[in-house]
Write a protein that binds this DNA or RNA. Structure first.
Length: 580
RNA sequence: GCACCCAUAGCUCAGCUGGAUAGAGCGCUGCCCUCCGAAGGCAGAGGUCUGAGGUUCGAAUCCUCAUGGGUGCGCCA
């Protein structure tokens, strides 16, 4: 149930009737007619801009249209009043029965209240994290993981069929570096003294990998030249790193559907097939790029390269797909990977990258647009940097200084729920200061606890009521006489609940899960407000003298907890039963 | 030099396919527990939405330019 969509449909019907009666020209385009919550509560429950949007095409004054529209809306039992205001807004007040219906719907549908069929089963591939398999995930990856996962859940909630996917860069030079580093740890496990030259990974996390390699193969690689062991060690090390990464993701409750190996694209003709697809469209050619403007790289010289004509699809320059030694650049397998995604039949693609990959957005979009003739949209969401703060000071991250903070460290410090919620209290493209000390504080300073507290309060009321022998099952509350919810403050809170399905659609459409977090904060605020008004107005307390009234009021509180629960579910956060 | 992202209250940030008098938290001032959890609530003060043009009935929102920050920029993925 989406109340705003319902009232919008009512409005459009009324406009159609006006046209049939000759009061408006026929065939007006109503797609820009909106029904929204007004910014100022004094303006009523909803407002429509219909009169202003249609004034020009109908060649009528906005107020005349609004005057004609108002009585048609008021004929509906759900509408208590419709008044013309301002430049031509129609402010709508809803009948009390509407709010009672909303609460009843939440109690009947549970966390499915707010689900949308907007996605219409469209398949979406969400690729996120995709960190190089060379070490544990760090704080930056954490934001990508949380964002991508919440976005995926949000899209599922809005009716899409979602695949969560991780692209493993296991074919480049950096996994050779990994293999050499593990080899050194392997020698160390055999008692050799080793040191780690530049261009190797000295991290302790490879010590157990070296030992595991020894346990597996004994000493067969000791004293052997690199070509003898490189491929084997690389495979072993990469697998070990992916185990590490999967374990890190599990700490956050992130579970991928697909891990896609870059290496699997090589030697199978799949890169060639993707490039051939572009060549077939006349988009591959041999040429020389202009030198970049401004400061030149020192060793710059003009070279002939195999290029993808990405400028035909909005990129700034054409991009090389093959190195001068004939090997593919990193971009070629990327193209092949996305070609593979489109061939798997996804209706749309989403990539979540760190902001430092912003420079690849245009070429990636160009590649997908070219491969699908603009048929499959690719949205790329960039997550900005995370700064960890403690006591107002930035925790500087430095591997050398030993202050490198990993995902595992962060989750260890503040827990998965707090990590996830805080990371989603900022828009993805805004930098995030993560105050580790504040995140653990149980106060209003901390939005996680504020929302959790609201949920816990409701649970507390339910426990208290149950102890008094009141049936507080959702079925019983839903069957209660909800007309007892007759106070404006209660209607206002129910109105917040009614916004939930609408918010889900907006958040899903814009690919912005942070909106869910802000909505939950707002909803929690509404509950806290009503709760405290009960201090001064006993009739607003949830527990009343008679059972029937109690059940109605508890029903409202329960409905709030259900929606909080649904929202937290999308964010991947467990609702609190009580605060401790 | 070019591209992308960003600029909203003292601070940290929301702001809905353009909508009415721009919101929240922190901080500041003053209130509210014989009462379901005060880990909360209420009220007040605080704004040329970086600047200048443009489109529109209407711009924080869209377009152009400027200023100030961040990120990236041909054989690293």
């Amino acid at each position: 149930m989406n109340l705003f969509a319902d009232i919008r449909a009512l409005t459009v019907d009324a406009l159609t009737n006006l046209a049939e009666d000759g009061l408006l020209p026929p065939g007006l385009d109503t797609k820009n007619v909106s029904v929204e919550p007004p910014r100022d509560a004094a303006h009523g429950d909803m407002a429509t801009n219909a009169a202003m949007v249609l004034a020009k095409p109908a060649k009528k004054k906005p107020r005349d249209i609004a005057d004609a529209l108002a009585p048609r809306l008021m004929a509906d039992p759900r509408i208590a009043s419709a008044e013309v205001a301002g430049p031509g807004f129609l402010n709508i007040r809803l009948a009390p029965v509407v709010w009672q219906t909303v609460v009843g719907a939440v109690l009947a549908q549970g966390t499915a209240f707010g689900r949308s069929d907007m996605g219409a089963g469209q398949t979406v591939n969400v690729e996120y994290v995709s960190a190089n398999p060379t070490g544990p995930l760090h704080v930056g990856h954490t934001r990508g993981a949380v964002f991508g996962d919440a976005l995926a859940s949000l899209l599922e909630y809005a009716g899409h069929t979602v695949t969560r996917e991780y692209y493993i860069n296991d074919a480049g030079a950096q996994v050779d570096v990994l293999a050499r580093s593990v080899y050194l740890r392997y020698l160390e496990a055999h008692g050799e003294a080793v040191d780690f030259p530049d261009g190797t990974y000295p991290g302790d996390y490879l010590v157990p990998v070296g030992q595991a390699l020894k346990a597996k193969v004994g000493d067969v690689y000791v004293g052997k030249a690199e070509p003898f062991w490189l491929a084997d060690v690389r495979a072993f090390a990469t697998e070990a790193m992916m185990d590490l990464i999967r374990a890190d993701l599990a700490r956050l409750g992130v579970e991928m559907d697909v891990f896609f190996s870059e290496k699997s694209l090589y030697g199978t003709g799949r890169i060639e097939a993707a490039i051939d697809a572009l060549r077939g469209k006349g988009l591959i050619y041999t040429g020389t790029l202009e030198p970049p403007k401004g400061k030149l790289p020192e060793d710059w010289e003009a070279r002939e390269q195999t290029l993808f004509k990405s400028t035909d699809y909005g990129d700034d320059v054409d991009r090389p797909i093959m190195k001068s030694d004939g090997a593919w650049t990193y971009f070629a397998p990327d193209i092949a990977y996305h070609f593979d995604k489109t061939e798997r039949g996804f209706d749309s693609l989403i990539n979540v990258f760190g902001a430092d990959h912003g420079g690849y957005v245009k070429r990636m979009k160009a590649a997908v647009a070219a491969l699908t003739d603009n048929g499959v949209p690719l949205d790329i969401k960039l997550t900005q940097l995370v700064k960890l703060m403690r006591d107002g000071q930035e925790l500087k991250m430095s591997k050398r200084a030993g202050t490198f903070v990993t995902l595992a460290d962060l989750v260890e410090m503040v827990g998965s729920d707090v990590t996830r919620f805080i990371m989603l209290t900022r828009k993805n493209d805004a930098p995030l200061d993560f105050a580790v000390d504040k995140a653990l504080e149980q106060s209003k300073d901390n939005p996680v606890y504020y929302v959790q507290y609201a949920h816990a309060r409701v649970m507390s009321v339910l426990r208290k009521a149950a102890a008094q022998g009141i049936d507080v099952s959702d079925a019983a509350l839903g069957a209660a006489d909800l007309t007892k919810l007759d106070h404006a403050a209660e209607h206002a809170l129910a109105g917040k609940l009614a916004e939930w399905p609408r918010l889900v659609e907006i958040a899903a459409r814009t690919h912005e899960p942070h909106r869910v977090a802000f909505y939950l904060y707002d909803l929690a605020s509404g509950l806290h407000g009503l709760w405290n008004r009960g201090n001064e107005e006993p009739s607003l307390r949830f527990l009343q003298e008679d059972v029937a009234t109690s059940q109605a009021k508890i029903g409202l509180a329960r409905a709030v907890s259900v929606v909080i629960s649904a929202g937290l579910g999308i964010l991947g956060v467990e609702p609190a039963q009580e605060m401790r």
